[in-house]
Design a protein around this nucleic acid. Structure first.
Length: 211
DNA sequence: CGCGGGATTTCCT
DNA sequence: GGAAATCCCGCGA
């Protein structure tokens, strides 16, 4: 029952998420099955070859946000856009920004307190070829930014508020590898409260959004 | 390789 | 009305 490790303040959660896995199940587009011209003898519906694809990534960079923080979407209180952040821990808060991009947060703390951690970069573990196909490019550039990884994992508003214990987008707790160290820095791309040390990275990981 | 602009939602002043 | 928890592409050096 992971929500207890997520039912903490945003900084602790942002830290604890480093090394954890995100598992994404993608239903293949229905393959156009060559069907006989007259469908003779066909009784049931179309037998689509359902080949769900599975992508696994490892979180390497996060940022903490909460309602006491001027840089947070929850600073001014609850709204239609941010309501998931005020819900229980362990759910997806997804927002659309710059008219183009989605970004994923894991909600933290307890119901009623708007807090969470932005997932800024991930390291592919399984399904790199699916990621590269989806992104139309190769290597770290596929996943080393908050909107990039959403594109790679096909994350959009349809997963808003999703319980991250469940497929098709789930979180699995995991530890850092031996020798890995956490580094804390200011957050990226904000102007308010820019000095706060609320960005957490696995030091030296090649998939970080910035070195 | 660094810089600049465009895309165009959602929120708050 | 304007800025934003961003990315990508094209430009010029």
């Amino acid at each position: 029952m992971f929500p207890q490790f997520l039912a903490q303040d945003a900084d602790s959660v942002a830290r604890a998420l480093l090394g954890c896995h995100i598992v994404r199940i993608l239903d293949d587009e229905p393959v156009d099955e060559p069907v006989g011209a007259h469908d003779a003898g066909r009784v049931s519906g179309r037998a689509d070859k359902h080949t769900p694809e599975r992508i696994v990534v490892r979180i390497v960079e996060t940022e903490a946000y909460d309602q006491l923080d001027p840089a947070s979407h929850t600073f001014h209180g609850k709204s239609e856009r941010n309501r998931a952040m005020f819900g229980p821990a362990g759910h997806a808060y997804i927002y659309f920004t710059y008219g183009m991009h989605y970004c994923l947060n894991v909600t933290a703390a307890t119901e009623g307190f708007g807090a969470g951690a932005l997932i800024r970069a991930v390291e592919p573990v399984e399904g790199m070829e699916i990621i590269e196909r989806r992104r139309g490019r190769k290597g770290a550039d596929c996943v080393n930014g908050p909107a990039k990884l959403c594109k790679a994992l096909d994350i959009d508003k349809t997963l808003y508020g999703h319980d991250l214990r469940l497929p098709p987008l789930s979180l699995e707790q995991a530890e850092l590898r031996p020798g890995e160290r956490i580094e804390v820095t200011p957050r990226i791309g904000i102007s308010k409260a820019a000095e706060r040390q609320r960005r957490f990275v696995i030091a030296g990981n090649p998939y970080l959004s910035r070195r």
